[in-house]
Computed example of a mutant assay.
Amino acid sequence: MRALTAAAIGLAAALALVFALTAVGAPDGHTSPEPLLTTVPEHP
């Protein structure tokens, strides 16, 4: 019974954190216009 109670408290805390972050919203910012390099450029 203690394990079930602990799991319920943990789930409630996790959901409260998710809802709090959702209420705050995403931080303001911008993305870079430069593309990210996924491979090493070849040198001639």
Rank of each mutant, 00 (worst) to 15 (best):
M1E: 06
M1K: 01
R2Y: 02
A3G: 02
A3V: 05
T5F: 09
T5P: 00
T5Y: 04
A6I: 00
A6L: 10
A6Q: 05
A6P: 00
A6T: 00
A6Y: 02
A7N: 05
A7S: 07
A7D: 12
A8G: 03
A8N: 03
A8M: 03
I9S: 06
I9L: 14
G10A: 13
L11A: 09
A12L: 14
A13T: 07
A13I: 07
A13F: 10
A14L: 15
A14W: 13
A14S: 11
L15Q: 09
L15P: 00
A16Q: 01
A16S: 13
A16G: 15
A16P: 02
A16E: 03
L17V: 08
L17C: 11
L17K: 02
V18N: 07
V18E: 12
F19Y: 10
F19Q: 06
F19M: 13
A20H: 07
L21N: 10
L21K: 04
T22C: 08
A23I: 12
A23H: 06
V24H: 08
A26P: 05
A26Q: 08
D28C: 02
D28L: 08
D28Q: 06
D28V: 04
D28H: 03
G29L: 01
G29H: 01
H30W: 13
H30L: 10
T31S: 06
T31Q: 04
S32Y: 00
S32H: 00
P33C: 01
P33V: 00
P33T: 01
E34S: 04
E34H: 02
P35F: 06
P35K: 10
P35S: 09
P35D: 07
P35Q: 09
L36W: 11
L36K: 07
L37S: 10
L37P: 07
L37K: 09
L37Y: 12
T38G: 07
T38H: 13
T39I: 04
V40E: 15
V40P: 05
V40W: 15
E42D: 09
E42K: 03
E42Q: 06
H43V: 11
P44A: 11
P44V: 05
